[in-house]
Design a protein around this nucleic acid. Structure first.
Lengths: 342, 342
DNA sequence: ATGAAAGCGCTAACAA
DNA sequence: TTGTTAGCGCTTTCAT
């Protein structure tokens, strides 16, 4: 059988010990960076290990008393740029900490959150990172019942009972709106994201607040519902532009929708930014490769992923620290999709 | 410390054995679904296990020689739609088989393939799925030295010594080109993908073959280099359109580049498809949400992921089967970015 | 500074 | 059908 062959070929701590003329315990010490090893011995061991191509066996290490060095990542799916960026950050940070990641998708257990979470908690991962938009409160309940370490990314716990990382969505939307106002725009439309999503709701509020702060009335007909997907940005643009007094600027609650808006605007035979200004949110990679380049609010997705990992590892190390919410700053990225109103 | 607590609390096979009045081996048998256990005994063990809340320790299980029910996925990164689709397929199929997936990124060990692969082989995964464009032959060498089960996705092994899944890239490009020819186009440009990539090279060949088959000379100035990224599609379009006799159709070796081409064409003030026809390759989700909708060659990405998993699980089960290469059919998806030449 | 020995939780011969 | 006995590769006391 396959597994046997593998076993017979694996270079173990023993082989290294023999080759270096020391005991297995000493080899272990070397690889765990214990300080009670003579420098010359350490070198000899390292030499031997290198020569033999020794690679530590994680299972054995963990079994013998170590930590699992594996965390879980629960997501609905990987199929959008937003998620990919977060995962990139997670991956980088995990790499630094020498942790592995098991990917769990909510898709896989439609409906039965409880048993899925239990399953995860009982398997190899030492903790869980959740990037689950529209997280049901039930998840949180179960998780805390399980007393299982976890961190919410781009979601918050209303009860303030979870570790979480998010961004200044309100402020980001406020800044973008204010930027448009500064450019002379007064008729600024807003395409909302998924209602109920915390980040999404914050963005609408930030938009409205900026308008009010500058004495511009909030017009209901300028605020339309979207769903964070490109087609909704496209679809919603037409009714907006068909208004008796159409907007001179459109602020989409995320970049995907902004891209859809751009498509629609072009289809209407209008020019961006000369005929209308467009702003997005997130700064996904595509925002800077589209033409004209999209002005948007950078959400530090990668960093959110990294900080999420940090928070989780912190919990693993100090299980008794109280929950903490980390809110990272967004940043307006001015590119080419907006113009001062003539 | 967390880990200690957990360890001291962990219910082992021993506890269950004692509670059920059997030996640990019997408990192991029950949990591995061996058939040589009396039904009444099995029930008793299950009862005891449930009562004590027993959960198998995977590390120990693997270390002792069992199967891990975890496979590894090695990718450069998740940051593009192409990869996301493949991963989606992998995830679905893994779910069916009740396997977990550990994500490994090549990013994490710049350069040192050998030790990274060894590390992977020595850790929890029972096998490895590789979606690594431009896979260095060295990887394959190491992998086969390790005698570790693996499957290549969208890559092939020139030596025919690996399990692999790919698609009919040549045929797909041939079909798309022929479609354009059928529409009356004669001046068809091609933007290449990354040279050296197997799939990419096949696509150029398919394009050329179709041209030749229809007696259309292959013009070198109509074939330009790209890199599969959107900006290259954009950049390469301008020189193409500045030619004395510019093409009436552009075939980009993948959708990302085709999207870039569309941007450039619009920037030139031309209309798609009235002034020029455009075809892509892959059929990423965005191809159908852009405007006009992109005519493209569907590469069954999701299915490739699924088949990759199947092939890997097959190897795990029958270690002695000889390597197999599975080539899935591509399919021309006609949408709105092409028009008959007037 | 180093070695010897025990054991982590489990699986897999081998007996019985 | 079931129990006994060895390990899997490693870490960690406890000696030396």
């Amino acid at each position: 059988m396959q597994e046997r062959k593998k076993a017979s070929q694996q270079v173990t701590i023993y082989d290294v010990a023999r080759a270096a003329g020391v005991s297995d315990a000493t080899v272990s010490r070397v690889f765990n960076n214990k300080n009670n090893v003579r420098e010359s011995t350490r070198e000899r061991v390292l030499q031997a290990a290198k020569k033999l191509g020794y690679v530590a066996n994680l299972q054995a290490r963990i079994l013998a008393g170590g930590k699992s060095h594996i965390i879980g990542l629960l997501v609905p799916g990987l199929d959008n740029a937003y998620m990919a960026e977060i995962v990139r950050g997670i991956d980088i940070e995990l790499g630094h900490a020498n942790y592995e990641m098991i990917l769990y998708t909510t898709r896989r257990r439609g409906g039965n959150e409880a048993s899925y979470l239990q399953y995860i908690a009982n398997s190899l991962s030492a903790g869980l990172l959740l990037v689950v938009p529209l997280l049901s409160p039930k998840y949180l309940e179960i998780l805390s019942d399980l007393e299982y370490p976890y961190v919410l990314i781009d979601e918050i716990d209303e009860q303030n009972n979870s570790f979480s990382v998010d961004a200044t969505n309100w402020q980001g939307a406020y800044d973008a709106t204010e930027y448009l106002i500064g450019l002379g725009h007064r008729r600024i439309a807003f395409i909302k994201g998924i209602v109920g999503l915390h980040s999404s709701d914050d963005r609408v509020q930030g938009y409205k607040a900026a308008l009010k702060a500058h004495g511009i009335p909030v017009r209901d007909d300028y605020i339309v519902e979207g769903d964070y997907m490109q087609p909704s940005g496209y679809d919603k643009t037409f009714p907006l532009m068909a208004l008796p007094t159409p907007p001179t600027a459109i602020f989409a609650a995320n970049d995907h929708m902004a891209l859809g808006v751009m498509d629609a605007i072009r289809e209407l035979g209008m020019d961006i930014p000369n005929d209308i200004s467009i702003v997005g949110f997130d700064d996904i990679p595509q925002a800077s490769t589209t033409h004209p380049k999209l002005t948007t609010v950078l959400q530090p997705l990668e960093q959110m992923g990294r900080e999420g990992v940090r928070l989780l590892l912190e919990q693993l190390q100090y299980p008794d620290r109280p929950p903490r919410r980390l809110t990272l700053p967004t940043q307006l990225i001015v590119r080419d999709s907006c113009r001062p109103l003539a």
